[in-house]
Design a protein around this nucleic acid. Structure first.
Lengths: 155, 155
DNA sequence: GGAATATTGTTTCATATGTAACTAATTCCG
DNA sequence: CGGAATTAGTTACATATGAAACAATATTCC
């Protein structure tokens, strides 16, 4: 028996924000477990490694923009990676506030171990979809992302 | 200049787990702000209210299954809602460990205020997509959810 | 019946996270 | 030039979160 005679219908299971959250968590958790279990990395540390591998000499602020992490999270992830010996801070010559961040050889080594595993995990995940469906999903997500936060344009 | 001669390609911006996470966060944050700003509710409290409105007399464990919250999170959300006067605990007659949870009139009242706002927010979000695209997105997400965690079947 | 086991829900504790305050360096602009 | 405002990044503090221990009740199975 419903508590109200004319309730507006809202089933959590069909509510997009909820579904997105649950799906994202399920996916992230699978992947995060891989980073953590095998390499002792948090998701944020992994993200920092990924963009630093892609753009050696990147600054912390830029990392934040690319990964959608706030500056405190970047600062902590960087500190952790440096302590683990995976990342190195090089003082910027033209702006003493910045550091240019680069992976150490050790960091690059584990990065290259992780990449194929991460891609394999992703591949297994999306293998449930045809190529066409994968492309369509990417397209719809882009549209949605733009609608959800028009200000920042990531993709 | 890439740091490695033959790096495996992984651009965060095209990596599905990352994109899902960013999208989900952007959407959740918009909605969470509404609950919090207007009604002082956390996302978890909102979820508990939603399933309790849908199924009066539900137990904490069932809430956890339906919302994908762990039992500690449910316990805390319930405690908060009770303190705010939005939820009521009725001892179960057949199992003294359980409570049957129901919204109070006050809780039902704000629930019915929130629902249209939440649905409007969702509608605005998905208005970037055609009806057909919305249906397609839902379908693809279901497939993906099944691939990501085949064990629990939510949808 | 009653000991062993499982389940429900809460509490405790250690860690993660976000906001705001802060330091240091740079840029803006009179 | 030189003070005001901005930016890069870190630190401090308060809160959120999750794992494990816990208490209370139910169930299983002999």
């Amino acid at each position: 028996m419903p508590q109200s005679p004319h309730p507006a219908p809202l089933r959590l299971a069909t509510f997009l924000p909820f579904r997105l959250s649950v799906l994202s968590n399920a996916v992230s958790q699978r992947i995060a477990e891989l980073y953590d279990r095998e390499f002792g990395l948090s998701i944020w540390q992994w993200r920092v490694m990924a963009v630093t591998a892609d753009t050696p000499g990147i600054s912390a602020t830029e990392i934040g923009q690319r990964t959608q992490m706030d500056k405190v999270a970047v600062s902590r992830a960087v500190a952790g990676l440096i302590e683990m010996g995976y990342l190195e801070r090089r003082p910027s010559t033209d702006d003493a506030r910045r550091s240019n961040l680069v992976l150490t050889p050790a960091g690059l080594g584990i990065y290259e171990l992780i990449v194929p595993l991460a891609l394999a995990e992703e591949a297994q995940l999306v293998s449930a979809l045809s190529d066409k469906e994968q492309a369509e999903l990417a397209r719809l997500m882009s549209k949605l992302a733009k609608a959800a936060s028009p200000e920042r344009d990531l993709w």
